[in-house]
Computed example of a mutant assay.
Amino acid sequence: MTAMAPQPVHHDDDNNEVVLLSFAMEHLEGALQLSQEMSWPYRLEDWAIALELGQGFVLRNSAGTVIATAAWWAYGETHASAGMIIVAKAAQGRGHGARLMDALLAAAHPRTITLNSTAEGLALYERRSFVRIGVVQQHQGVPHERHQAPPASLVRAMAPSDAEAVARLDQQGTGWARRQMLDRLVQAGDGHVLVRDGEPRGYAISRRFGRGYVIGPVVAESAVDGRALIEASLACLGQVFVRVDTAASSQLGDWLESIGLRQVGDAITMVKGPHIPPAGPARMFALANQSFN
C-alpha cells in the first residue's frame, strides 16, 4: 500500500481530533478490536491477508485509537469490491462512515464497485448511488456427518498447472480479473477442480477463516456441480466448523441447511457503476467472503 499523508482534521462531538489515514499494518490490531466489538469473526490473520491483497483507510482519534475502517480490492482497472467497513459503536452517528466511503470511492474511481451491505449500511450506500442486485445468505455450523468425496474422475485436488483454468473460470463467473487474489487464497488453503471431458469446469477453495473454515470461492456451471465441489471440500475438512456464503438464488440453501450449515444471516449485494452480468457459463456459488465477494 502506498503511504498517505494525514488528511485535514475533523472533530467529533467530544472535540477529539479524528484523522483519515491509509490502512497500514500498524492498524491491524485496532481493526481486529473493531471487528470483535461487532462480533464479526475475523482473526488477525484474516485482516492481514485482506490488507495484503487490498488497500483502504482508517480513522484514528487523538488517542491513537482506530475508530473506523474501510477496505477495497481492485480487480483490474474496471472492477473492485469493498468491505470491512466498520465504525466503533461509540463513534457512530457522526459522519465517520460517510467520510470513509467517500475516500474509498475516490480512490477506486472509476471502477464499478460491488459490496455486501448489512441492513444498517443500506442508506449510506444508496445515497452514493449503489443499487441492490441480490442477497447473500451466510450458512455455518458443524456438518451432521462426514461427507464422502465425489469420484476422483469428477473432482480432484487442484494442481499448480490449474492456475490459468481457475482464473478463467473465475472471470466467467464474476466478470472480474483477480488472479493475484486467487493465487493467494490457494496458497492459504486447499483447492479442488471439477473436471468434465478432460477440462476443468469448476473450482472450489477452502481455507482457515474466522471461527473455523470457509469454503469459497466456489465457481461451477450448475448447482449440482457446485454442491459436488463443496462436498469434496467437506470430505477433506471433516466435522469442523464451516462457513459458506452463497447467493439466495444459488439453489444451495436448502441443502446446506440439511447437512447442518444453517443460515444465520444475510446481506444485500449492491453495485455502483455499470453492472453487466457475468458471461458464464460458470457461475459463482460461494464467495471467498462477503468483503472479497
Rank of each mutant, 00 (worst) to 15 (best):
V58P: 03
G97M: 07
A98F: 09
G76P: 12
M38E: 15
T78A: 11
S117P: 00
L104A: 12
G83H: 03
S22F: 01
V58W: 04
S117Q: 06
A82K: 01
S62Q: 10
I67A: 06
L100P: 02
F23Q: 13
S62D: 14
R94M: 07
A48M: 03
G97P: 01
A31G: 09
I67L: 09
A74Y: 00
Q55R: 12
G56N: 11
G56L: 05
L105G: 13
E37G: 03
T78C: 10
R94K: 10
A82G: 00
H96R: 04
D102C: 06
S62G: 13
A103Y: 06
A80I: 12
T112I: 04
G76K: 05
T65R: 15
A90G: 14
A108E: 06
A48K: 14
R111E: 05
F23D: 12
A68D: 03
M25S: 15
V66K: 05
A71W: 02
E45C: 00
L53M: 11
G54E: 09
S117R: 00
F57W: 13
E29F: 11
V66T: 14
D102M: 01
P110I: 01
H109M: 02
Q36S: 10
Y42P: 03
R60T: 05
A80N: 11
E37L: 03
I49M: 12
A80P: 04
A108D: 10
A103M: 14
G97S: 07
T69K: 01
I113T: 10
Q33G: 04
L34K: 06
G56A: 13
A106C: 02
W47E: 04
T65D: 12
G95H: 05
A106D: 14
P110M: 08
I113E: 00
A31S: 14
I49V: 11
L53G: 11
V19E: 08
K89C: 11
V58M: 08
S81Q: 07
A48N: 05
H27V: 02
G121K: 12
A106S: 13
R43D: 09
L20C: 11
G95K: 13
G64K: 04
I49L: 15
I113N: 01
T112R: 12
